[in-house]
Amino acid sequence: MFELIGIPPQALFGQLLLGLINGSFYALLSLGLAVIFGMLNVINFAHGALYMLGAFVAWFLLQYLGLGYWWALVLSPVAVGAVGIVIEKTMLQRLYKLDHLYGLLFTFGLALILEGIFKHFYGVSGQSYTTPDLFKGGTNLGFMFLPYYRGWVVVLSIAVCAATWYAIEKTRLGSYLRAATENPRLVQSFGINVPVMITLTYGFGVALAGLAGVMAAPIYSVNPLMGSNLIIVVFAVVVIGGMGSIFGAVVSGYLLGLLEGLTKVFMPEAANIVVFVIMVVVLLLRPAGLFGRER
């Protein structure tokens, strides 16, 4: 069958693996969005800009403090999370009572401001960030050459997604969080500080974006536009997965990465729109998304 359309199976495996790698970024970003949407009911349009911020923090650390990739992997999400907490505490918090569009517009504006600032100071051609020494080079898998770093991205992304899913679905803290989204007043009456929990959730969600930014830095050049290029696709991923469904966001992230990978072989020109075509189909057939429930 493969020969019929002129693609040898080996090339296909290679493309599937590449799709999985891109899917890792989609999954990490859509996970953060789903956590924030699920817990705060806020559509966080600043997610792409915070992903970009994560990559830039990594670059700053290397450039000005001489701290390499491993430091960045820890410090950058913390820094981005802290920025997120400040945003939530000082601004976003005031919008919960209003229509959701306010949250969307606020975060959208925030994204434009952040991007504008970085564009002004750093231009758009981007800064280069080298691959950590441990992951330099790669290995030949027979059907493709796999750079070690890309392998690491897949492993780390799966680990982080699984851990987050476990924390929210299976732990006591997670159960508080889920309860607080259903009925914040009731949970508060049990002596749990819901506002703090919400703040920390937002901080955690955007820290995931920061982490994805650090992971992306050695692959793509660190540039102010990197977030806005990605965020639209990631939103489509969240819609397909089902709004607020953590499992759905992660699974559809990987799945769409794979599908996009295949499109790049069979019909490269359509690679940018395939995700949106799928979004339309999914919304027609299952308006709540693949894993979402009507609310």
């Binding site: 949407f37 009911n41 559509i43 349009f45 959701h100 569009l101 969307l104 959208f108 939103f235 969240v238 819609v239 709004m243 607020g244 308006p287 709540a288 609310r295």
Partner: peptide
């Protein structure tokens, strides 16, 4: 929510 997200 979905409407808002799609608008986004």
């Amino acid at each position: 929510f979905k409407k808002a997200l799609l608008a986004g």
